[in-house]
Nucleic acid binder design. Structure first.
Lengths: 255, 255
DNA sequence: CTTGACTATGACGCAACGTCATGGTATATG
DNA sequence: CATATACCATGACGTTGCGTCATAGTCAAG
């Protein structure tokens, strides 16, 4: 069974122009074509379109959607369930906004002065958008990431609770790994490998960290007693050990 | 008191370009101008800007905002109630989407092929957009009509990006504010006020953040190198300063 | 064979700014 | 007082996801 462009547009509640556009940007090319050049969409095309609209409804840019739907690890079932989860959160967010608006109106009735911040809160749709983006981030992680997106995702992901936990854990692992090697010399290949891991880890997960910065960080671990305490709590002398290891690592790399 | 465009941009968390644009479309013309053509904004201009941003946060197109803020019959109270009505409709719309998604998943489990029309209903966000338009139309009737009101569905997706930038900017400002006060004691009232601001910022932008969590967050800023680096990049030692300030703030609030 | 509904491909337009490019201006410092 | 640098000005073009003509070919019905 095939469908003309108008039929598809009606079924999917999109415009013919939209389908033209999706064809033009190679987001959705119809499987068939009549002799006279009419587009003919197959059932599989309809499914693709559904997926596209799904991600569009999440606020994904079309370029990203293109990358995602072409990913081989894409699971429609999972997408649906995730969508439901997102909707549930959205409902909760609406509830919160309703409560905020109610409070504001109440305050107004009592003649209280409305400071601008409270007023803004009542109308603040950021709550809704936050869930949307958060979910979008998760979805992107699950269904494939393009290089361009990894960057922006990294920035936003550090705000989620789960990530904070993960970050803490990863940081702890590196510290403990170094603590375990404290018997060796700071220049020991194993130690240096860990420092390098640490550096790469910062670079890839956070931002470009120059050797100078890394070196300064190491100094601070030792020079500030409160830093020292934090690190030496893992194992006495760890702060100093890390600093030395970092120093060697940095000089070995020309800094 | 007058302010240059850059100052206004900083205060209102908008870009200079935005203010240029608002001037160009006569949405907000600064009251004064220097001999050399610099824009000078008066306090009254700031109030206008607040209102503009208020309606912008509701997703109103600028053309309509222009009509609204110039209308003499503008009533905040009415705006709030209308907004609540809109939220109630939005909640209903979310319910419908949830039902549609549920049906789709169910049909999938049974291995049925869904008929095409209902299949698309699951992701049809038009329902959500429709009430938004309806609300806007009502507002238009109430607060005056615009000559050229054109509905824009893409507002939402742009709004998301814009918001993230704003959130990040707010965070950066708080950090810089704290960095500027690093000479003082962490218990200094000015410092504590900023910490409170930070707490509110976390609450409104990310998730409900208890005093315990906040305290833990402060610890992490010190114990996790990645966070330490971010904060110390603003100013060396800032991470520690913030942690101490947070600690004092939390104990002062009974945690 | 005409009519009217449908299709095709350009090409331009729109919001709401971002992002240079280019150049003038205010002000702190050597 | 010259210079550096941080701000300001005005274009002008880019962006996303299509809407909206304009022009023209196609298909089924009457």
């Amino acid at each position: 069974m095939t469908y003309t462009i108008g039929k598809v547009a009606d079924m999917a509640h999109v415009s013919v122009r939209t389908l033209h556009y999706y064809d033009a940007i190679d987001l959705l090319n119809p499987s068939y074509e009549t002799a006279s050049g009419y587009r003919l969409y197959a059932d599989s095309d309809l499914e693709s379109l559904q997926q596209i609209l799904f991600f569009r409804s999440l606020g994904f840019p079309l370029a990203q959607i293109k990358a995602i739907v072409k990913s081989p690890t894409f699971d429609r079932r999972e997408a649906l369930e995730a969508h439901r989860t997102a909707l549930l959160e959205r409902r909760k967010a609406v509830e919160r906004l309703l409560a905020a608006v109610g409070c504001t109106i109440e305050a107004m009735d009592k003649g209280e002065t409305m400071d601008t911040t409270t007023m803004f809160d009542a109308f603040d749709e950021r709550a809704l958008e936050e869930h949307r983006t958060k979910y979008a981030d998760e979805a992107k992680q699950r269904w494939g990431t393009t290089d361009a997106y990894v960057e922006s995702q990294r920035r936003t992901s550090k705000y989620t609770k789960e990530n904070w936990k993960r970050i803490q854990q990863e940081g702890a692992e590196i510290r403990e790994g170094l603590a375990a090697l404290m018997g060796r010399s700071p220049s020991d290949p194993g130690v240096q490998a860990l420092v390098k891991l640490f550096h790469e880890y910062m670079n890839s997960n956070f931002y470009a960290c120059s050797f100078e910065m890394l070196s300064g960080l190491g100094d601070m671990y030792v020079s500030d007693p409160r830093f020292t305490a934090t690190y030496d709590k893992v194992k006495p002398g760890l702060a100093l050990f890390i600093r030395d290891a970092i120093k060697i690592y940095c000089t070995a790399n020309g800094a």
